[in-house]
Design a protein around this nucleic acid. Structure first.
Ligand SMILES: [Mn+2]
Ligand SMILES: [Mn+2]
Ligand SMILES: [Zn+2]
Ligand SMILES: [Zn+2]
Lengths: 142, 142
DNA sequence: TAGTAAATTTATAATAAGTACAATGTTATT
DNA sequence: AATAACATTGTACTTATTATAAATTTACTA
């Protein structure tokens, strides 16, 4: 019986990425926290367990994961980069009140855009913004 | 017969925005250049005509336009904010080779997302990335 | 297994977009 | 004309990300 640590190690090796401790821990964090964290979130979550961890390593590792299609970058705001390990296509809703980013299903993969005929599409993102149900309710109780 | 300058002045007045020279010129630029410019693009385009122009004014004015729904912010990259005066819903494709941002029609307005039931959606963005037809052809000639 | 090369991590400095703020200039109101 | 409100400007500041080089770890080889 394999541990998660071992599974993630295999995943890295399969992608020709050396399974360093830092890389496995960052990957493990992304797998365990589908909250679309920032690089800073990841750094702060791991710094107690890896006291020597550098933010450069977090950025380098995330770039590495992205270029190997193990993670994707969300640019829902131009002020902060967020990362998502869930690679199947889905949309994102950011609540401007609480900041949480929600996932939702949307079929954009099979939509044909005739204006983009002859274009090579590598990445499709659907970003919504607004106020989530929880925050809407909280406001009515004011 | 009204001039464009007069039309844009009226548009600002209708939105309770004082039609200062700077504001009209920035609005005029956005109307004349549907290239999804950065704040810096706008500043550089206008600085010769308005030598005293400040980047603060460009940022302030763009924020003002956005909060009055006269323009929208595109966060297709987390590294640069881009602005669009075309307010009807449409998608954006960014060519990672030449950097151009193309518009395309997509009907996202009437799509019901059941996971977002009870959410207040204020803004919908569809961002694609890839390589445009022109750049693809240029590459084959290498 | 010692030595060397390659890869990775780390710390620090540099970059640059955007924001905050106070001073200056302009417009409207009395 | 005096005053208040509004808008613009320049400067300083913040902060996420990138660049760079040194230090560390790992892989490879004699
Ligand atoms: Mn997601
Ligand atoms: Mn557009
Ligand atoms: Zn919320
Ligand atoms: Zn192109």
């Amino acid at each position: 019986m394999k541990s998660l640590f071992q599974d993630l190690t295999s995943l890295l090796v399969q992608n020709n990425i050396r399974p360093s401790y830092q890389r496995i821990k960052i990957l493990e964090y992304l797998h365990g926290h589908h909250i679309h964290p920032t690089a800073d979130d990841i750094f702060n979550a791991l710094i107690s367990e890896i006291p020597t961890l550098s933010k450069s390593t977090v950025y380098n590792t995330l770039d590495l994961f992205i270029s190997n299609n193990l993670a994707r970058l969300l640019s829902i705001e131009d002020t902060e980069a967020r990362y998502d390990i869930v690679m199947n296509n889905h949309g994102h809703f950011k609540c401007v009140s609480c900041g949480e980013i929600f996932n939702f299903d949307i079929d954009i993969e099979n939509t044909v855009i005739k204006e983009l005929d002859g274009f090579s599409i590598k990445d499709k993102n659907v970003y919504f913004k607004g106020i989530c149900a929880k925050c809407l309710q909280a406001n009515t109780h004011e």
